[in-house]
Amino acid sequence: MEKIPILKMGKFLLVTIQVDLYDRLALTLEEDLIQMVFKTGSKGVLIDISALSIVDSFMGKIIGNIAGMSSIMDAETVVVGMQPAVAITLIELGLPLSGVHTALNVEKGMALLESRMPPSLDDANDDDVD
């Protein structure tokens, strides 16, 4: 069965979607990612969709699901590399992807994830914004 690879990079998981997503493949990715977050204890998930020429309501829902589930498991999700035409289309479609962090590219997405990691030592009583 076809699968989208999930790479572990330090504290984070990196997914680069390079193929046409059909629904079953997207659902498999959702399952695999959540399993990986659980197994590796990753604190962040970065999904690169720069090769996707379309994100429809189904894929939008999957992206939202991944972000929601990861968040419950204490991991942040950042979607990077969305093509401008895809962004325009998503808004018109009525799917603003609220609740999902986005960044322009992988580098900025990584920086965003890093910035959201709590300082590794004690002192956990300040930023509880959610």
Partner: peptide
């Protein structure tokens, strides 16, 4: 154009699904 293309294939995807 690419924006209209993307809109059309997205609509196609929704209706076909």
């Amino acid at each position: 154009g690419i924006v209209n293309q993307t809109k059309l294939i997205t609509a196609t995807s929704e209706i076909a699904r």
